[in-house]
């Protein structure tokens, strides 16, 4: 469903931006409060619930034992998918996965996969015969803006707390999944003409294009995505990348504090 954008909302966002203000009183690079819970779903081998402002998502990790791909006989696999089901908001409709939900799943997937935080060789049980497949499913329950960052945070937190159910697969004792890094995502949306961090639902509705940046432990880039209609300048990107460096480190710390 295409959402109706009241012109007064766009005007107001522009006016606020000119006064260096935001619609909910935050400053330009200020995030909403985040609450992260892990191990919150019975039946999932790793799980996380993220309450990001009024946005709520769950992520669950499941494992399977399968035969490896012929071209990679000694490597396991990782798959991350997101579901934007109609539960998440009035604008979401039933039906096959929308382009939006596929984009969301793939952007989160790339950030985790390309960071190299999972050693695919370590997922091999018997070369050529048995490998582990990791599946991360993300479920958005309440979309009040910036589901990308919430989903990326939930996915890595669920992964970092996952236990491989080896006993159930008859391949030894259960053990914690080895995850060597904590890639996190930071998203920026053009609102009233300028980029802001962590746009809420009103800012997304009246705003323009968005940029998603996933950074790993060294501050290296692992996934970038520009979405929606609009353009940006290299100078604008430099500015938000600096903000992302600091913010992603804070998010990684939040995830890592869950494990103790």
């Amino acid at each position: 469903m295409v959402e109706l954008v009241p012109k007064l909302l766009q005007q107001e966002l522009k006016r606020l931006a000119e006064n260096d203000q935001r619609i909910d009183g935050r400053s330009r690079w200020e995030s909403r409060d985040i609450k992260l819970e892990t191990n919150c779903l019975y039946n999932a081998e790793g799980s996380a619930k993220v309450t990001w402002g009024e946005t709520i998502i769950y992520a669950g990790v499941k494992f399977e034992v399968r035969t490896p791909w012929p071209d990679r006989p000694a490597q396991g696999s990782l798959m991350c998918g997101a579901e934007l089901r109609p539960v998440a908001g009035r604008k979401y409709e039933p039906g096959p996965p929308s382009p939006e939900s596929i984009e969301l799943g793939r952007v989160v997937d790339r950030g985790i996969r390309e960071s190299g935080c999972i050693d695919m060789d370590s997922l091999c049980i018997i070369p050529g015969e048995k490998v582990l497949g990791i599946m991360i499913d993300i479920h958005v329950l309440s979309d009040k803006g910036n589901i990308f960052d919430a989903c990326a945070l939930g996915a890595i937190a669920a992964l970092r707390t996952a236990i491989v159910p080896a006993e159930r697969f008859d391949v030894g004792e259960d053990y914690p999944l080895a995850v060597s890094m904590t890639p996190t995502m930071c998203s920026f949306t053009r609102v009233g003409g300028r980029y802001v961090l962590d746009a809420n639902d009103e800012e997304e509705l009246g705003g323009n294009e968005r940029i998603h940046i996933t950074l790993g432990d060294e501050g290296h880039l692992h996934s970038l995505q520009k979405g929606l209609k609009g353009t940006f300048t290299p100078a604008e990107f430099d500015e938000i990348l600096q903000v992302a460096q600091q913010r992603c480190a804070e998010l990684a710390e939040l995830v890592n504090s869950q494990e103790a």
């Binding site: 039946n43 669950g60 499913d137």
Partner: peptide, 17 residues
């Protein structure tokens, strides 16, 4: 009404849909 089981809700993962 849409009743749906999340992929991670059971011991064997359910394919979405």
């Amino acid at each position: 009404v849409r009743y749906n089981m999340a992929p991670f809700s059971t011991s064997d993962r359910i394919r979405p849909g």
